[in-house]
Amino acid sequence: MDSFLSALKISLWVATSSTLLVALFGLALAFVLARCNFRGKNIIDAVVTIPMVLPPTVVGYYLMVLLGREGIVGAPLYQLTGWSFLFTWQGAVIAAFIVSLPLMVRVARSAIESVDEDLIRVSYSLGKSKWETFVHVILPLARSGIMAGVVLAFARGLGEFGATLMIAGNIPGRTSTLSLSIYSAFQAGDDTRAGQLAWVLTGISVFVVYLAGKLSRSRWM
């Protein structure tokens, strides 16, 4: 029971932290991709989206190349602080962040793009800056889509397995999330436990996806 509670706690903590990051960066990215035109936009779009289609192990591998003790960012970080993302909950957060970011960006971007261009033009003609227009017109009208993106990102973060296993490992009480505990229980031959954990995770996910559907219905049209 204790290990179940700790796995649940780690799962919720990791998914919540990564969702906060995803909401922040994802919204900014979605806005830039939806409303700005610049060179290399398609490349950014592709880079953000690719973790959605790559096998999680491949994402995990790239994260190691980037954040591992000999990684591009990881090596100087380790030399400077003696700390690395490997086998930490922060590593799990990064893994969840990378795999759920594309969901948020896709959903939020299409919500932002669906805001009538004329409303934005009128807002400009009424003296409002791009930022004011974003806050007072785009954000409230795209809100349900943005919320749906956040909720989906949470669900994806909660279910993350492959990349998390590679970068954060599966350390009970520290990085062993619900999805990782299911794997451990199954490996140890404890099918009953694996089944129970699977049901809990399914329950949470169904609720979250239901919430996303409820949120994505617009009120104004």
């Binding site: 004329d118 409303l119 003609s125 009120r219």
Partner: peptide, 20 residues
């Protein structure tokens, strides 16, 4: 001149009232 400073009153075809 950016649209914010043109002081044009703009009425698009569908009126574009803010629905919210």
């Amino acid at each position: 001149l950016p649209p914010q400073r043109r002081e044009i009153g703009y009425l698009p075809q569908n009126y574009a009232l803010f629905p919210h």
